[in-house]
Design a protein around this nucleic acid. Structure first.
Lengths: 156, 156
DNA sequence: GATGAAAGTTTCGTCCT
DNA sequence: AGGACGAAACTTTCATC
């Protein structure tokens, strides 16, 4: 599915402010509200827009600690993978998780209030039998946070 | 600043859908629109809500490749740190960056269309004189993506 | 794609409890 | 604090060009 310059402008604006009204978007992309809304709905229906989210300040909701956790598994049998990923989905302190290339199998991003809180998360991970090794890398300072995805400027 | 149960309900709802209208939020937290809007504005003004964002499908905007990049620096002099972080801010393929504990100094999340595109990013990083070592870990599959932050259920 | 009209919502200030 | 009212703005659909 193709995105023209106007679509990309709309997406760029919405990444910066997900609550922009259609009227405001229309004005900024130099369209009248009707066609602008048609584009917006199309972007939503095609799944290009997956959803709208609210960014919270982690410090202020007492989740000031972010830890990147590398997990190595004992094996990669289907059952182990399934059980591990199920466990991950059930742990709400784990906010992102990916399988990765390299020496680790999974990279998780975990939030916690403090070390004690974090320790509880690690303990849960250690209890999982398919987990062989856990390495915790604490985020000391966030240099860049949730920057917008760069939309290519080319090709109409 | 204290968050009561209603505040947390509002934040939970808004994390799930950042475009909820005040009227909809009010209904779901069993408040009338007026006090609900007052709470929302307070959450925004106190900085607990940092902003509203739109989630895009990376595949569909041709950014299907995500790479976690660990960077080791030659030194940690103020000038090196400043220049490096400035460079990071200027690279829009780098969507998140943190300093981390452990053997690496920085952990970056980089998006790209494909390997060729990613290679351009790495080349730019390699050109930075304060960078000593770069390790790329490719995200093979995302198991959990941008899950909402877990708000404690306790303490009114 | 633009425009305009009309009905329904939403926001937000004000006033009341 | 929460709730109610009202004015202005916004959304959305529809018909039309």
């Amino acid at each position: 599915m193709k995105l023209d310059v106007t679509d990309r402008k709309i997406l760029k604006l919405l990444q910066q402010d997900g609550r922009l009204s259609n009227a405001e978007i229309a004005e900024q992309v130099a369209l009248s509200p009707s066609p602008c809304l048609r584009r917006l709905r199309r972007l939503e229906q095609e799944g290009i827009i997956e959803g709208y989210q609210t960014q919270l300040n982690r410090q202020k909701i007492d989740l000031g600690m972010t830890v990147f956790v590398q997990i190595k598994m004992h094996d990669h049998h289907a059952a182990s993978v399934k059980n591990f990923e199920q466990a991950i989905h059930g742990m709400d302190a784990v906010i992102t998780a990916s399988t990765v290339s390299g020496s680790a199998d999974y990279l998780l991003e975990v939030v916690a209030s403090d070390l004690e809180d974090y320790d509880r998360v690690v303990s849960k991970l250690q209890e999982l039998k398919m987990v062989r090794e856990i390495e915790s890398n604490f985020a000391l300072r966030r240099v860049k946070t949730a920057a917008p995805l760069p939309l290519k400027r080319l090709s109409d």
